[in-house]
C-alpha cells in the first residue's frame, strides 16, 4: 500500500512538473519560413521567439477540423483571426515591447506563446 501511495504522489508531482514547471524550448522566428501547424490539439511550435520592436509575420496552417481550432486569438494585441483549414494564413504582428504574449484558440485548448525580446 505504501508503495502505491508513493507512486500516486510521484505521479501528481510529475503532472505538476510536466505541465506547469517545465519550460519547453522555444523556436526562433528566423529568416526562413516558420509555419505554425495547428493540429491534434496543439500549436507546433507553441513557443515562438520574435525580435522586439519589429513587426513580423506569423504563418499558421490549420490541419485540424475541430471548430475550436478555427479561431486564433492574441488577446493582448486584440487580434482575432479565422484560420482557414489546410491553407496558409499570414498574421501580421506589430512591433512589440519585450514580454510574453499568449495566443490560443476560442476555448483555450490550443495554447501558445510569443516571446518577445
Amino acid at each position: 500500500m505504501l508503495f502505491i501511495n508513493i507512486a500516486g504522489i510521484t505521479l501528481i508531482a510529475l503532472i505538476v512538473w510536466w505541465f506547469w514547471l517545465y519550460k519547453p524550448q522555444q523556436l526562433k522566428l528566423g529568416e526562413g519560413d516558420l509555419v505554425i501547424a495547428v493540429e491534434n490539439g496543439t500549436y507546433s511550435p507553441s513557443r515562438i521567439k520574435i525580435p522586439e520592436g519589429k513587426p513580423v509575420e506569423l504563418k499558421f496552417l490549420r490541419k485540424d477540423q475541430s471548430p475550436c481550432s478555427e479561431t486564433l486569438l492574441i488577446p493582448k494585441l486584440e487580434i482575432s483571426e479565422t484560420l482557414p483549414s489546410n491553407k496558409l494564413k499570414q498574421i501580421q504582428i506589430p512591433a512589440l515591447e519585450p514580454g510574453e504574449y499568449d495566443f490560443h484558440c476560442q476555448m483555450q485548448m490550443y495554447r501558445g506563446k510569443l516571446v518577445v525580446g
Binding site: F19, Y22, P24, N40, G41, T42, Y43, M109, Y110, R111
Partner: peptide, 12 residues
C-alpha cells in the same frame, strides 16, 4: 491529440 499535446507540455 492527447499525445501531441502531452509532448508539448499542454493538456486538453
Amino acid at each position: 491529440g492527447a499525445w501531441q499535446s502531452l509532448k508539448n507540455h499542454s493538456a486538453n
